[in-house]
Each structure stands twice: as C-alpha cells, then as structure tokens.
C-alpha cells in the first residue's frame, strides 16, 4: 500500500524507526495497566514450585547422565562385538588362496595308510597304466595335502574355512601318461620333501622321496627306476619299501628283485 502522500510516507518511516515522538508520547499516555499483586504472587509461586520440584527430584541429574550412559553402553557393545567377531575376520584372509601358501611352511607328509587298508584296496599292477592311475591319484592327494593350511595355535573358524574359495592347488588335472609323469613327479616330490623340512641329519643318499608315497605309487617308481637302468637306486628303494610295508603283497615282477 502506498498512499502517494510524501508526508505520510515520511511519517510512516519515522514510525517504523521509532522516531514518531508524538504518537509514541500519546501511546505512553494511554493507561498502563499492569498485573495486580495477586497475579504477581501466583506467577512467582509457579516459578518457585518448578525450581523446588527440579531440585527435589533426581530426574534432572539422571537426564544429564543419560547421554553418557548411552555412549558407554554403545562402546561396550561395540567392543564385545569386535572381540567376538574380530578373530574370525582376521582369520579369513589367511584362508584365502594366494595368502596361505606363502606363510605355510610346507605340506605335511602324506598320511600313512594302514597296511590293512592297503591290503584291502591294493591290487597288483602288472602294467604301467594302472600304476600311472594310482600315481595320479596319489599326486592329487598330495596336492590336496600341500594346499591344506597347517593347523595353528587357534584353528580358523569352520565358517571361514567353509566360505573360503577352494585353493588353486585343488584343481583336478587329467592324469598324465605314466612315462611322462614319472620324472616331473619325482622332481616335484623332491621339492616337496625339501620344502617340508626333511631332517637335516639324513644324508642325501639315504633320502628316498618314495617313503611319502603310497605302496602302489612307490612300487611304480621302483619299476620306472628299473626301466631307467637305475638298478642300485631301485634296489635301495625296494629294500626300504620292504621295511616300511613288510606285509604288503609284492607284485610278480618285483617279487624276486634283490
């Protein structure tokens, strides 16, 4: 609204700026009513009662401490959760592929199979093919063992183990022909044995990597040595085999070896 009257506009601006002394003076001359004494007393009593009530009840103190207690409770919960879940989280990376092999010293020796079990499962191999198959199976077993983490002071939780992806070493490869497989296999077995920390006091000549193999595999290696004209080595290995598996039924082609 603009009155179009310059004088009015000036007076209105003065009024807004509290400079209209005439109007202000007139307004101040209006009766200046105030609350009576009874009303004053009632309000002061209200204020006094409120302060007294706050001082009496410990609720105010509790209110002040409530945020502190809340934060403490949350921290305690978080710490408890971390202690309970934390070790599982710390363990998980160790069970993942690529992380474990570097830290694991070596594969454990192949589990010794009870001779009785060997009897039950062993069938005399007269040809190289069944022996090669047995050797491939044994290789797989060894690889599995090599990729399996060595138990630690505190075992990794089962859940973490289950969730961990299978190590690359567990990949099943097709069996190689016996003739091409034997040499690399022996070399690998040697490496495995050395990395497994074979006792240092055993002379290299007396070491026989075949002791870690199954009887069938061991015998297959002995045959291969014979074919490779390594008769003395084959005989030494055969003697050790006889000591290790005295009850093992020898195949016909090796029965008279001495």
């Amino acid at each position: 609204m603009n009155s179009g009257n310059p004088q009015f506009e000036r007076d209105f601006e003065a009024f807004l700026e509290s400079d209209d002394s005439r109007l202000d003076a007139l307004y101040r001359k209006l009766p200046q009513p105030e609350p009576d004494a009874r009303l004053d007393a009632a309000v002061r009593a209200l204020a006094q009662r409120a302060v007294a009530a706050t001082a009496r009840t410990p609720v105010a103190a509790h209110r002040r401490w409530l945020p502190v207690f809340s934060v403490a409770a949350v921290v305690a919960l978080a710490v408890g959760f971390a202690f309970r879940i934390g070790p599982q989280l710390w363990q998980r990376p160790a069970s993942q592929p690529g992380a474990e092999p570097a830290s694991v010293p070596s594969a454990p020796p192949a589990p010794a199979v009870a001779p009785s079990a060997q009897k039950a499962s062993a069938t005399p191999a007269a040809t190289a093919a069944p022996a090669a198959q047995a050797a491939a199976a044994e290789m797989k077993k060894m690889e599995n063992a090599a990729s399996r983490p060595v138990p630690r002071a505190f075992p990794a939780p089962a859940r973490a183990m289950r969730e961990a992806p299978p190590p690359a070493a567990l990949e099943v490869k097709p069996p190689m022909p016996a003739a091409t497989m034997a040499a690399p296999m022996r070399a690998r077995q040697q490496v495995d044995m050395e990395s497994a920390g074979a006792p240092a006091h055993v002379p290299p000549a007396e070491r026989d990597s075949n002791v870690t193999l199954s009887p069938e595999h061991w015998l297959a290696n002995i045959r291969q040595m014979l074919r490779d004209n390594q008769r003395e080595e084959a005989l030494r290995s055969f003697e050790k085999f006889r000591k290790s598996y005295p009850d093992y039924p020898l195949p016909d082609d090796l029965r008279d070896l001495h």
Binding site: Q32, E34, D40, V43, R44, A47, Q48, V51, T54, A55
Partner: peptide, 15 residues
Amino acid sequence: GDLRAFDTLYARSRG
C-alpha cells in the same frame, strides 16, 4: 534454578 534471576526477569517484562 536461580530464582532471583526469574524475579528480575519478571519485573522487567510483566508490564
């Protein structure tokens, strides 16, 4: 909880 502060405040504002 300062009741005197309220009295001052009330005296200033009541009218």
